[in-house]
């Protein structure tokens, strides 16, 4: 159990050099926070979508993200040995990771959650915790418990005027996240499946009555959420340069914090929450202390849940009696 404790202490994001003017330092923190927030957003969307549809905290979602990162690493390793160029590796790694994470998300729902529909509320949550433990140990046993170096896949390029403040991988991460978020928003708003998802989230029975296949919608939710997490997993692994089987736990909890902060069940809320959390963490660790990095996130989580469980954009649920 010792290795776990140490693993947890590893920071999620490593900063570049810290020499520069105050303004430069501020900007560096800002972009670092933006990057962090982007990754949280990619993961948080999965939590919030699943919660919106089946009111389950998908505890294993962090592990999906971790599996995405590992799949990316494996693809990168194989293609790298075959001599592919960096950028091609990145694209293929993301694609394969998305496919695999989606497949895992799909399978997990079928095994651990579907048989428990209609069971007491805590049952699927306990099942999800079990699944999370299982997946972590599965990857640890099949691969390794050590940190694995992850090749830097995102090509280096210079950003005029901001050299040393923002790196190319940060730019790519933020850009990809923006594109993904916009695409998802459009899909949910105008896509046929997206509309079905919104309908199911509002009232599952009604959706079923008007002919929406609830099983398909739930599966689709897991698949989409997992895909987003995989994108985040590969990008952040390439940015930080190392992964291990444990990265999903902390990242998952923080992304969950982001989802709750924004109002769980709300998609724009998850994006906003992730941004706020990322920036808060970046500035807190940059200006206050980096020892308590994770404590900030946990404390934020606890405080929101206690004082405003509905989050920024969520609705306070009323209980029907």
């Amino acid at each position: 159990m010792n290795s776990r404790g140490q693993a947890a202490a590893c920071p999620l994001i490593v900063y570049g050099n810290r020499i520069g003017t105050l303004m430069e330092y501020f900007l560096e923190l800002f972009f670092g926070g933006l990057t962090r927030g982007s990754i949280y957003a990619l993961i948080a969307l999965g939590y919030t979508m699943v919660y919106g549809i089946i009111e389950l905290i998908n505890f294993a979602h962090g592990e999906i993200y971790m599996i995405g990162a590992f799949t990316g690493l494996i693809v990168a390793g194989v293609l790298g040995a075959l001599g592919f160029p960096g950028f091609a590796i990145l694209v293929l790694a993301v694609i394969v990771a998305v496919i695999y994470s989606a497949a895992y998300g799909f399978t997990i729902e079928k095994i651990a959650y579907k048989p428990l529909r209609g069971a007491p509320r805590l049952s699927p949550l306990i099942s999800a915790i079990g699944m999370s433990i299982f997946l972590q140990n599965y990857v640890m046993l099949a691969q390794t418990s050590d940190f694995l170096p992850f090749p830097s896949l995102i090509p280096e390029f210079k950003i005029p005027g901001l050299t040393g403040i923002i790196t190319s991988s940060e730019v790519v991460i933020v850009a990809v996240t923006v594109v993904v978020c916009v695409a998802l928003t459009l899909f949910i708003k105008y896509g046929k499946l997206g509309k079905a998802m919104r309908a199911t989230a509002q009232n599952r029975k009604m959706a079923q009555l008007v002919g929406i296949s609830v099983n398909t919608v739930i599966s689709a939710t897991f698949v989409i959420g997992s895909s987003l997490a995989a994108v985040g997993g590969v990008l952040i692994a390439s940015h930080i340069g190392q992964i291990n089987y444990y990265i999903g736990f902390i990242a998952g909890i923080k992304a969950f914090t982001a989802a709750v902060l924004g109002g769980i069940g709300s998609i724009p809320g998850a994006m906003l929450g992730a941004l706020i959390l990322g920036l808060t963490e970046a500035f807190a660790t940059g200006y206050v202390s980096s020892d308590y990095e994770d404590v900030f996130a946990f404390a934020l989580l606890v405080l929101i849940l206690i004082f405003r469980p509905a989050g920024i954009m969520g609705k306070q649920p009323t209980q029907k009696v």
């Binding site: 048989p115 099942s127 433990i133 299982f134």
Partner: peptide, 13 residues
């Protein structure tokens, strides 16, 4: 831990 995790899922199901 692998078995613990799997058992938790199986017991719940």
């Amino acid at each position: 831990m692998l078995i613990f995790g799997a058992t938790m899922v199986l017991v719940m199901v």
